[in-house]
Design a protein around this nucleic acid. Structure first.
Length: 462
RNA sequence: GGUCCUAUCGUCUAGUGGUUAGGACGGCAGGUUCUCAUCCUGUAAACAUCGGUUCGAUUCCGAUUAGGAUCACCA
């Protein structure tokens, strides 16, 4: 039974990179009729934010990446929040101590800082010097009795090779001398990520440890822990990291990383998932538009390219536009109505939806395009002062139209243009400005039909 | 800097020991059109470099270069 997990730290608004990771977990689990678990990794008390957990689930719900087990959907492996599992980590840390695979460290922050500085000065990689490994059992007992503050460190042996098999990259070898004696238990009794993730993944019977490439370097520690515990290792998958245009790690300085931004802009969640699927993976038929279900049917980790792809907002917008255009008018109308919190008159949204369907890429494009339906323009993108006479003539002509439909309005306007010997393009542009205020608008005749005769005549008599 | 990862159009990617190296976004140029958009047509644009292996390498191997990740009592 395949079991994957999204390990999420509740430290703020959900990040698009987190969703990217979770997507692979979710899809792979579903591909193999397994389980997808969400685990809350809140072992950093400083960084944990109170309502972040709630936001994580709101985001997952929005995307439809619904988990099988989590803090809100407890299963047989509970609890699913790491801060509720402290006694478990303690037990396993003690186990490692007893096996001499980990050791107490009483070094002060000052000593560690100094050590780090000295090594850096010599252009060496800052690493712990195993100072406290030399402590005798008796010394340790005394220090513990005196309640001295301590951490527990991983005892990494010298001069061995640590091998890890990554699904995307094959075998990777690390020299143990370049692996630091990682702190496993902090002085506040909380575990660090490394201990917690190994213990939890083992106890929760996670079969595929899927995580971002930023963890690749530290996976030697993970492998070592599995070996020390004598546990069966999961399959390791280090997925690519989404990049900024300058190829650095995707960050809010250069892009929009927060899920909430995409919601506010009116991107559809299924579009974002579709787009994200294409980062590192490609459809065997070269298709770009496909559903989550289709992705599930075809997905395999082996087909992911291990290159960090650049996030391209322009292409995402294009794709969002495709989805919007493929929607039924009724569904799109409802999406727009909901997007604007049901504040806009529903009948106008309904009538205008077909007009703007091929003109918007995001739901938030609707209002700038359709604002003139809700209120008369207050300023005009072109100065109309010299055109008053022209509009009087149009007014007179339109007044005669009894059947107020786009087609008849159009006929009447085209006739008038001919009569006045004005080019259609010029004629309609002036009309557009006076009716909508803007040089760019939905089709004019249809817009005027929706606005109604009375309102149009009113706008003509400026 | 140490360690590790990676390398096809600007971007996302397909692909092969012999191909006119394909598609998509974006660009450019046309067409349709009352604007914009949609739609349609066309077009420019890539195998990082240098060595091997080979009859032949973009493809296999190595080195170089470049980019990235990581080096906390953060995840």
């Amino acid at each position: 039974m395949v079991r994957t997990r999204a390990a999420i730290s509740p430290t703020g608004y959900p990040h698009i990179g987190t969703i990217y990771q979770a997507l692979f977990d979710y899809v792979f689990a579903h591909r193999h009729k397994g389980k997808f678990i969400v685990r809350i990794e809140d072992t950093d008390k400083e960084r944990t934010v109170a309502d972040a957990e709630e936001k994580v689930f709101m985001a997952l719900d929005w995307f439809g990446l619904i988990e099988d087990e989590s803090v809100r959907k407890e299963g047989p492996y509970k609890p699913y929040r790491q801060s509720d599992r402290l006694d478990i980590y303690k037990k396993y840390a003690d186990d490692l101590i007893n096996k001499n695979k980990a050791y107490y460290c009483f070094c002060s922050k000052e000593r560690l800082d100094k050590l780090r500085q000295e090594l850096q000065k010599k252009d060496k990689v800052p690493m712990y010097d195993k100072h406290c490994l030399k402590l005798t059992k008796e010394e340790i007992k005394q220090k513990l009795a005196k309640n001295e503050s301590y951490v527990i460190r991983l005892n990494v042996p010298n001069n061995i090779q640590i091998k890890i098999k990554d699904e995307l990259r094959g075998e990777i070898t690390f020299e143990s001398n370049s692996v630091d004696d990682q702190v496993l238990m902090k002085s506040d009794g909380y575990p660090t990520y490394f201990l917690a993730v190994v213990v939890d993944d083992h106890l929760m019977e996670i079969t595929h440890m899927v995580r971002g490439e930023e963890w690749l370097t530290s996976s030697a520690k993970i492998v070592l822990l599995y070996e020390y515990f004598g546990w069966k290792k999961p399959i390791f998958v280090h997925t690519p990291i989404i990049r900024n245009p300058d190829r650095s790690k995707f960050s809010k300085r250069q892009g929009h990383t927060s899920v909430s931004w995409y919601q506010e802009q009116g991107f559809l969640p299924e579009v974002i998932l579709n787009y994200l699927s294409l980062m590192g993976w490609s459809h065997p038929d070269g298709k770009e538009i496909f559903s989550l279900d289709e992705f599930i049917k075809l997905f395999d980790f082996k087909d992911i390219k291990p290159i960090g792809p650049v996030f391209d907002l322009i292409k995402l917008e294009w794709m969002n536009g495709i989805y919007l255009r493929n929607m039924e008018n009724e569904d799109l109308r409802f999406k727009i109505y909901e997007f604007y919190k049901k504040q806009l008159p529903e009948n106008i949204v309904e009538k205008t939806t077909p007009l703007i369907k091929e003109r918007i890429k995001k739901l938030s494009d609707y209002l700038p395009l359709c604002e003139f339906f809700f209120k008369a323009p207050e300023k005009f993108e072109v100065d109309l002062a010299s055109k008053k006479d022209f509009f009087r003539k149009v007014h007179a002509e339109l007044e005669k139209v009894t059947d107020w439909k786009a087609l008849t309005i159009g006929d009447s306007l085209v006739n008038l243009a001919k009569k006045l010997e004005i080019k259609n393009s010029q004629f309609f542009m002036d009309m557009r400005i006076v009716i909508t205020g803007k040089k760019i608008s939905p089709p004019l005749n249809e817009s005027m039909e929706i606005l109604g005769k009375e309102e149009c005549l009113k706008r003509l008599s400026i």
